[in-house]
Design a protein around this nucleic acid. Structure first.
Lengths: 208, 208
DNA sequence: AGATGTGAATGAGTTCACAGCT
DNA sequence: AGCTGTGAACTCATTCACATCT
């Protein structure tokens, strides 16, 4: 099957998940795995795993399963994880600071290269491996670091203006933690991560 | 339309979103709003808003729109947000500490009532409004606070055992931040929030 | 006139079931 | 014999279009 097809976000998120499962298997020294085995171990659906993987081409071995390392490498490159991704964090409050130190944001191809805040009190402070910089340096920072991805972790009321600044600094993708719908901008992809929504979903299912 | 129908998680998340939009409108002093106006302001779909809201019963006014306060109140109660929800946080590392102080987790019906960690160094420390408690106190804490919801913010390798402990302490809903699929337990609802997946999704769309 | 509420049409995503390969 | 890869069936979700009400 062709390599150019676009994957849906749903498929994409599952592929990320499979990749992590494969990493786990690799660590455990497992070298081959079937869709059923994957499903059993990680509570997934075998049919769906096959459908998802089939979109990346045929490289399962019928009667046997998949080669763990080969599959992981294929996923890796298909997901765009085979090149470095510097990440900027805007808003170094509690959440921004936690993200800067979050292992998942500083592993493999991802690296948090700078934190940005407009509070002069915070500028210059070291948080984890990075130093907090002023919002005014945003454009220069983006250019110098080559960052295309930014996390927006500012309060709701500051989200719109900071998002605009990110767009103007040439950022291409934004992971938005502010509980706000950002005005769509062409050429800039936004993924909203609303932590509160998760809680509300759980609360719903607690009604008797 | 009946009140007993179960809402899908997708619908549910949008209803949460609408609720926040209505809050914003209320603050701005807007008292009536149409589905089109909501869609325009917050970049949503008018048809979908109507479909979603219709599931909660008829209380729009044809030719006019919806009463902002009335609609907000209805959503509120339908989502189960009209009673208090004490929240426990397990794992007081960077992420757990940030969540404990996160405004969205300490607003309205939600309140973080305790943080839990098995590191004796951390036990007793104050973080935001709460004090860190030992994992051994989990069961008692759950009973005393009446918490039904917990956030799991421990490293991947500690997730399974802590999840088990939560289940045994009688927790009903878990917001899981660990990049791990938890073994399903009947009677316990899990919502996975994987921050890394968000980054990976963005990285995918940066491939040329 | 203008907006809601809703069946009908369309589209997306998942599961089934089995042909085909190793 | 066993597992992949995939069309077909099915379920779930969104969009359309309009009758219905204020």
């Amino acid at each position: 099957m062709a390599d150019a097809v676009d994957l849906s976000p749903l498929t994409l998120n599952r592929l990320s998940l499979y990749l992590r499962c494969l990493g786990d298997l690799e660590e455990r020294g497992v070298s081959r795995v079937s869709s059923h085995e994957l499903a059993r171990r990680y509570h997934l659906s075998a049919a769906q795993i096959r459908k998802d993987l089939a979109q990346l081409g045929e490289f399962g071995i019928r009667g046997v399963g998949y080669d763990v390392r080969h599959l992981a490498a294929r996923l890796h490159s298909r997901l765009g994880l085979d090149r470095r991704h510097p990440v900027l964090i805007v808003g170094m409050g509690n959440l921004g600071s936690a993200l800067a130190r979050y292992p998942g944001f500083n592993q493999g191809c991802f690296e948090v290269v700078a934190g940005i805040d407009n509070d002069p009190q915070k500028v210059g402070r070291k948080i984890g491996a990075i130093t907090v910089r002023s919002t005014r340096d945003l454009r220069r920072l983006a250019r110098e670091t080559g960052a295309e991805i930014a996390c927006l972790a500012v309060p709701a009321e500051a989200a719109a203006e900071n998002f605009l600044a990110l767009c103007e600094a040439g950022i291409k993708s934004v992971l938005n933690f502010a509980p706000v719908r950002l005005e769509p901008r062409r050429g800039v992809r936004v993924k909203n991560v609303d932590l509160r929504t998760g809680l509300e979903e759980l609360a719903y299912f607690l009604r008797e």
